[in-house]
Amino acid sequence: MNADNDHKVIIAEGVTKEYSDNGLPVMALRGIDLTIEQGEFAAIVGPSGSGKTTFLNVVSGLDSITEGSVRLDGKLLSTMSGRELSDYRRDRIGFIFQAYNLIPVLTVEENVEYIMLLQGIDKKERHRRVRDLLAQLGLDGMADRLPSRLSGGQQQRVAVARAIVSRPALVLADEPTANLDSKTALDLIDMMRRLNEESGVTFVFSTHDSMIMARARRLIVLKDGRIDRDEAQA
């Protein structure tokens, strides 16, 4: 395990999130206390509506919290401006969503280098990193393809490539295997785990698939917006 116990990537304390759904108040998170250490490979699990996606959104600064605090790399999110948050996500967090991750009008290569373009990395370096990563993820020869010409599994692998190409400290994946068949889903999780082991990138992903849960080293079970269980796995 690559976790560095001295470096806490996420520190969530008493995180509460309430939002309105068609005028009705919904308590999505109820006082979550959670710490994620660097290099972890953690799964957040729970049934639909348990708060998995909301938790990932608030710890990444995509959504605000109602109460409590979230620190990323020691920085308190509530003190960061919108621009700082955008820059922070760009430089420090990789995202993988369950579907529609990619920009349909950009090729595989353009999608993967998108964040590096935002970072202002020069063309040569971008090209090198993209080619290396595509090869590493088994996407050789697909650089010029549009996402619509890839299978679901291939699209998610491209999403993984985009998430890690800028070498973030943390990758947040919201049900990345939800739209994949079992074999492809396991392949994807194994690939993410390999990247975690080889490069030390912290992965936090949500799932409700028991096979995927088994691959995680830490299992955080959410129920009705609260942490029901938090346990390490072999």
């Binding site: 990444s60 955008s86 996500r89 995202f95 969503f97 935002l118």
Partner: peptide, 14 residues
């Protein structure tokens, strides 16, 4: 909308 959400999420400035 989702695509714009993804673009914002990965660090695209407003």
């Amino acid at each position: 909308m989702f695509e714009f959400g993804v673009m914002r999420a990965v660090g695209t400035q407003p």
